[in-house]
Design a protein around this nucleic acid. Sequence first.
DNA 1: CGTAGTTTTGAGTTTTGTCAATAACCGTGG
DNA 2: CCACGGTTATTGACAAAACTCAAAACTACG
Lengths: 248, 248
Amino acid sequence: MTDNEPPGGARIPQLCQQCTARHKGICGALTGAELARMNKISDQRKFPANTTLYGDSQDVPYFANVLEGVIKLSKYLSDGRQQIVALQFAPDFMGRPFSSSSELSVETASDVTLCTIPRRGFETFLADSPGLQERLLRQTLIELDETREWMVTLGRKTAREKVASFLVRIAAHIQVPDSDDDSRYQLVFDLPLTRTDMADFLGLTVETVSRQLSKLRKSGILEITHNRHVEIIDLDALLGACEETAAA
Amino acid sequence: MTDNEPPGGARIPQLCQQCTARHKGICGALTGAELARMNKISDQRKFPANTTLYGDSQDVPYFANVLEGVIKLSKYLSDGRQQIVALQFAPDFMGRPFSSSSELSVETASDVTLCTIPRRGFETFLADSPGLQERLLRQTLIELDETREWMVTLGRKTAREKVASFLVRIAAHIQVPDSDDDSRYQLVFDLPLTRTDMADFLGLTVETVSRQLSKLRKSGILEITHNRHVEIIDLDALLGACEETAAA
DNA sequence: CGTAGTTTTGAGTTTTGTCAATAACCGTGG
DNA sequence: CCACGGTTATTGACAAAACTCAAAACTACG
């Protein structure tokens, strides 16, 4: 592929063409020319699992599209209790424009590839492009919806329902390398979180998470090998376990 | 005050001038001319406590600024378990542009005054005014921050900490009629929620909420009369009770 | 193979939930 | 002003769910 700019300046950069985020992510709002400009200031970077990208009370110095892997956003109480408040999967957009008063810690849960964009550059960009701003508003509203959905899980579900809901959530969002299965749920995947992280996402203890997983395993709903590798055997039963009716 | 339009068309409508939302709410982003246009299609309306403004899975047909009172947004599980996912106080903006896939029920918790704007009108407005869109994005991001903050309460705090956190939250947000006290927290106020609603916001049962309130009362941190009327006696102790360290 | 880190399992305790009874509050009408 | 009925809140006794602490099993990796 040549690098010649066509007269209109609307060529889509090579890098962005391959990028998953091109279709569903924030960049989908951009014109070819804008993409080219964005591409100039953005940077593809890889991080190993369990890297702290950014700690408390500091502004993240860049925005990013998650291209691969899972990011966890968490909050801490002063005595160390932790709550994971969001997981971000590809092609989610990561970052908080207009600076954040909320103190969040941003860590990679698995190996992660990001397309990073320096904060400053992105914010001028945002001011120029109403399309981008609308896209960002839409994505933020969706995140808000999902966060509220998870509040129901945290506040009102039992340990069993929480664990089942977590597995379903992962099955719905995770990307499995060379899987041609693009149905609604992945039935086979590796958990991107340790038991401790799962507990911190679900508002439970490690032991409770482990016990509930064991029960799901023993009742034949799923299989777990090597701690992380999950196969969902009975999807309907798992979906049912996300919200069990008292009666019956 | 005369009603003559000045040459520039930038007069601020009488109604909006008085409106609380004028300063902090969504309308602060508007120019005088825009306010006038918005004012033509908006409508001030009062609702008694415990009115369902909008039920599940329907789009709210209007947007609104909350001028007075408290709105609760809640979600239900199929067996009736309820979780309140947000409380909206004046001058919050209420509504979900671009339609919502999430099924929310919107009810008044107290008597409420709204400045309503028909959905259609607001959305064309939004498309025209980048300032409004940015304002909306900012407010949505703040809501997301607050929701995440509350997730920590739901997932990781004890019953006592939850109840204390709730009281502090109310003290920080509620408007008290003819109070000249504009400090950070109102020390005297009426609870806008029943014990049942408090329980549904905190992920607890009514009985647990009641017991924790009794304990706070008996330890001299606050007084409660007529069920709803709260006086905070020892604010520091209450703030401390929001996040208690294991040690000690 | 051995070691460090994770996960699972067990036993006992604590917190919170459940069920049931009592008490307080609110509006209405005598 | 007080009595009444309906609703809402409190309290108690008990049960269940989830947590804590401790030990054993598994996994990954040198």
